[in-house]
Design a protein around this nucleic acid. Sequence first.
DNA 1: TTATAGTTGCCCACAAAGTGTAAAAACGTG
DNA 2: CACGTTTTTACACTTTGTGGGCAACTATAA
Lengths: 150, 150
Amino acid sequence: MLFQGEFNNAIDAKGRASIPAKFRDVLSSVFADERLIVTQNDGGLAAYPIQEWEKVLEKVNAMEASPLKDAINLALISPAIECPFDKQGRIQLTKAQRCYAGLESEIREIVVVGSINKIMIWNRAMHAEMRKQAENLLKTESQALYNLGF
Amino acid sequence: MLFQGEFNNAIDAKGRASIPAKFRDVLSSVFADERLIVTQNDGGLAAYPIQEWEKVLEKVNAMEASPLKDAINLALISPAIECPFDKQGRIQLTKAQRCYAGLESEIREIVVVGSINKIMIWNRAMHAEMRKQAENLLKTESQALYNLGF
DNA sequence: TTATAGTTGCCCACAAAGTGTAAAAACGTG
DNA sequence: CACGTTTTTACACTTTGTGGGCAACTATAA
């Protein structure tokens, strides 16, 4: 397990998001490279260690032309940009990234979520709403959950 | 990776579009030439560093005559024009270019998107709409995305 | 031709955004 | 509870983006 857990961190007035120390530790110990590529996905931001991102790129490049490939390029690849860490372990997000993720001006509360090989960053309120939706679905699937061992 | 990322910039009343400093840096450091050739493509504007544009031209010239070649000349090559930077890092777009890209008079909001070897300029609302379409398609292909590493 | 309106390029100035550093506050561990 | 680590706040400074003024030039019409 690489990135794991949820962290309620903040984004400052200039758009810098602090990344949990645990995730930075994973970057330096497992990947030996602190570079993060941040893209937009599903209403939030997804940050990939550069090695992971390059694997993704190779696979996408190998696809033959199709509407799906175009959509991936438009929605996932083009917006991607490297966001370097500052000395306090924060990454500077661009205006466009904040705009996409609902992190304008006065909004400071984010949640940083580990997701195996990537790190997701959400507007905290939005994330809470998504969780609620998910939990509602789970209520209708108690048997399946039981079978899974939950 | 040359041009990467999305930037929410503006076009002013005179039709000047500001190009992100990062992209200007790529032009001067990688291409050592700030000239941009701007053409029309797919409802937006595409700006090529002059070296990249010349590569394209050579390849098109090498094609033997065909309806496709004619269409390329008509739709992509003919409208192309060099748009020089002013000292504030903006390029002056012509009326025809703005008209084509849905950037008339009062519309100020654009998005400048890096796309490997070229820079795309979109009406921001139009781009958001395209992204939405793309994301809808992606939602139906979550297994494929997972396989690609997203 | 002259007058007029529109376009283009150049310049300046202000506002907004980004960067870097330091220090305070909060947190978690022993 | 005290300590070290982590996160947040605060401030100063730099860079970038945007709007506006002005003059030169172009095209059109009277």
